[in-house]
Computed example of a mutant assay.
Amino acid sequence: MSNAPVDTGRRKFLTATTAVVGGVGAAAVAVPFIKSWNPSAKAKAAGAPVEVDLSKVEPGQLIRVEWRGKPVWVVRRTQEIIDQLTTINDQLRDPSSQEPQQPAYAAGEERSIKPEYFIAVGLCTHLGCSPTYLPDSFGEQVEGVKSGFFCPCHGSKFDMAGRVFAGVPAPLNLVVPKHHYVNDTTVIIGLDEGESA
């Protein structure tokens, strides 16, 4: 055992230096770690509103866009399709859209701001499969109904306003996202009128 005097000044210096270096190292690790909690630019863009040009959408045509990583349908309904919406209410689970699957301005039989255009998230409310648009052959699924959406996963059926037929696995109508029209041919999906991104 050595009886040499202990240099307390040196010990304090080394302890302080180690603490400072350790603190700098912890900060160097913490900053990128905390930054990783923020959404990436790609994730922010995926949740951003989507502008859709309707000028080239033909009557009866469905176009798909992506919003928040989900398929969104925009269908230009014909007057014949719009007229048929009121004739099938007795076959539907929620014909007046009482369940909150849409903004208040899109409730009711048409489930849209403009009757000509139907906008919905293209995912079945049963297990999230994407239904198939049947513009002319939906009558094979529901007698007397020309057009609609059929989910091939478990057989759920939706009319041209995304309202679910009774007696199928899907419990709710298709989701109608927030949206508003900038002009006659442009719709913004993901924002209500007056809302900012």
Results as ranks from 00 to 15, higher is better:
residue 19 A to L: 15
residue 172 L to H: 06
residue 111 R to A: 06
residue 23 G to R: 08
residue 17 T to W: 01
residue 175 V to F: 06
residue 89 N to W: 02
residue 1 M to G: 15
residue 18 T to N: 05
residue 193 E to T: 02
residue 84 Q to M: 09
residue 45 A to L: 10
residue 26 A to Q: 02
residue 134 L to E: 09
residue 101 Q to V: 02
residue 158 F to P: 10
residue 158 F to N: 11
residue 145 V to S: 11
residue 56 K to V: 00
residue 3 N to P: 08
residue 125 T to N: 02
residue 182 V to W: 01
residue 195 E to G: 07
residue 107 A to E: 07
residue 177 P to T: 00
residue 191 L to P: 01
residue 154 H to I: 15
residue 133 Y to I: 07
residue 37 W to G: 14
residue 153 C to L: 11
residue 40 S to I: 12
residue 117 Y to G: 03
residue 157 K to V: 10
residue 116 E to C: 01
residue 77 R to H: 07
residue 44 K to D: 09
residue 130 S to Q: 03
residue 7 D to V: 07
residue 73 W to H: 03
residue 187 V to C: 07
residue 102 Q to G: 00
residue 153 C to K: 15
residue 39 P to A: 11
residue 184 D to N: 06
residue 35 K to G: 14
residue 159 D to N: 15
residue 81 I to W: 09
residue 103 P to C: 05
residue 180 H to G: 05
residue 71 P to K: 02
residue 154 H to G: 13
residue 98 Q to K: 09
residue 166 A to G: 05
residue 28 A to D: 08
residue 65 V to F: 01
residue 72 V to K: 03
residue 139 G to T: 11
residue 97 S to I: 01
residue 96 S to Y: 08
residue 183 N to F: 04
residue 66 E to M: 08
residue 78 T to V: 01
residue 124 C to V: 05
residue 117 Y to A: 02
residue 7 D to F: 03
residue 186 T to I: 11
residue 151 C to S: 08
residue 89 N to Y: 12
residue 106 A to C: 14
residue 1 M to N: 13
residue 131 P to S: 07
residue 10 R to S: 12
residue 164 V to G: 08
residue 86 T to E: 10
residue 188 I to W: 02
residue 154 H to R: 12
residue 128 G to S: 04
residue 153 C to S: 09
residue 108 G to H: 12
residue 175 V to E: 06
residue 65 V to E: 02
residue 63 I to T: 02
residue 31 V to D: 05
residue 82 I to D: 14
residue 94 D to W: 06
residue 1 M to D: 13
residue 169 P to A: 10
residue 165 F to S: 15
residue 79 Q to L: 06
residue 142 V to M: 14
residue 189 I to V: 14
residue 64 R to G: 04
residue 120 A to S: 13
residue 85 L to S: 15
residue 182 V to R: 10
residue 106 A to M: 03
residue 130 S to R: 05
residue 46 A to D: 13
residue 21 V to Y: 07
residue 135 P to D: 06
residue 180 H to K: 04
residue 109 E to Q: 13
